[in-house]
């Protein structure tokens, strides 16, 4: 399995999918139709679970995401959460933005995987 990268766009984040055990999102996510943007990630996760199956660390460093993206991000995390693999989320948020911290905490209560929070100044 090869590593894959979705480059950052005006509307979507940079996504790095590394079969060594990391998946990271960096930037903002505000597409009106986020399902198209995250399609390669859904496929990569499905392949990773079946083909690699090692522990996976998901790093979320998003400075904005809209409701359409919230659905897709939760969907991605749920597919990992429901699998057998060990996983965790590192939630990096701007230290002066309470909303983004709360967004992570809300995801956490909807999932079983552990979350680690890092406020970035």
């Amino acid at each position: 399995m090869l590593s894959e990268t979705i480059p950052e766009t005006q509307l979507g984040p940079k996504v790095v999918m590394d079969p060594e055990g990391s998946l990271s999102f960096h930037g903002k996510s505000m597409m009106e139709d986020a399902s198209l943007y995250y399609q390669p990630c859904h496929k990569w996760i499905a392949d990773y679970i079946v083909g690699v199956g090692k522990p996976l660390t998901v790093t979320m460093e998003l400075n904005y995401f809209n409701s359409s993206s919230a659905k897709q991000l939760l969907k991605l995390l749920m597919s990992i959460d429901e699998s057998e693999i060990e996983s965790k989320v590192i939630w990096i948020y701007p230290a002066d933005n309470d909303v983004l911290l709360e967004r992570g905490q809300e995801f956490e209560v909807m999932l079983n995987m552990p979350f680690e929070y890092q406020g970035k100044s």
């Binding site: 359409s68 939760l74 909807m110």
Partner: peptide
């Protein structure tokens, strides 16, 4: 949280939240 979690089961881009 309820609507967002439910929306994951549906295809399409809209979360309805």
């Amino acid at each position: 949280k309820k609507v967002l979690k439910e929306s994951v089961k549906n295809e399409g881009n809209n979360a309805g939240v």
